[in-house]
């Protein structure tokens, strides 16, 4: 099993007030699955994604990633897991504004010590895969929203991670551009990648094999998508 979440809880503390964002999530995801997470605003989708992406740690419960217990890892160990196992695509792209597309894609490789020439080659390949081979030296503000998200996807897959996580990757894009992005994810999935994405749109979720619906920090429904 690639991902095993057992009774994951996340409680935010704002002063003395405790906000339970996740109240006991049990989910497993296998290799090469394509999962969509849906649910109303505030239901805990992003919170769950951040935990799966090792950006955040659960308050309670265990998270096994590739049979490693992630719940009790140190900051630096988590950083290495993020670097090696996870490719994150954010709704707001989160590119470095002053760096070129190429340099943005190179970032994960810098932090695992890939030598410069190899780094550059890998980043160029990743940009080619998302159809941005001709925009490598552009800065983010010289690119359209869809192109920026492609750069972010190239960055997420450059290190050949076990999972690609995308939190509303099409949320800031129009529906046509959104479809283009979804095609890239589908290609990645066909190529053997495991993909988990959060979305509000049914038509986006239809691209996946399985939809997990959250409500109030709990899994409401978890079902396969059939009509494909």
């Amino acid at each position: 099993m690639l991902i095993e979440l057992q009774s994951i809880e996340k409680i935010y503390e704002i002063g003395t007030v405790k906000v339970p964002a996740l109240k006991g999530i049990n989910v497993t995801v296998d290799k090469n699955e394509y999962v969509a997470i849906m649910g109303p605003s505030g239901s805990g989708k992003s919170t769950l994604m951040n935990i799966v992406g090792c950006l955040d740690t659960p308050s309670n419960g265990t998270y096994m990633l590739n049979d490693n217990n992630v719940s009790d890892m140190s900051d630096d160990e988590l950083a290495e897991i993020r670097n090696r196992e996870i490719g994150f695509v954010f709704q707001t792209f989160n590119l470095l504004p002053r760096a070129s597309a190429l340099h943005n894609v190179e970032l994960p490789l810098i932090y695992n010590g890939t030598p410069a020439t190899k780094r550059r080659k890998q980043a160029e390949e990743a940009l080619d895969r998302v159809g941005l081979g001709d925009r490598m030296h552009h800065k983010p503000n010289e690119l359209s929203g869809g192109q920026r998200q492609r750069v972010a996807i190239a960055r997420a897959l450059v290190n050949d991670p076990s999972i690609i996580l995308a939190d509303e990757p099409t949320g800031n894009l129009d529906s046509r551009t959104g479809e283009e992005i979804m095609e890239i994810f589908e290609d990645l999935h066909d190529g053997g990648n495991t993909i988990i994405l959060v979305t509000h749109e049914e038509y986006i979720a239809e691209h996946s094999d399985r939809i997990i619906r959250l409500r109030d920090g709990l899994v409401e429904r978890d079902e396969a998508v059939h009509e494909r």
């Binding site: 630096d76 950083a79 993020r82 090696r84 989160n94 590119l95 470095l96 970032l107 994960p108 932090y111």
Partner: peptide, 15 residues
């Protein structure tokens, strides 16, 4: 934010 991005991509404290 830049630090957040770098950390999300695997930068350790030392980096």
């Amino acid at each position: 934010r830049e630090i957040g991005i770098r950390k999300a991509l695997g930068a350790r404290r030392f980096d």
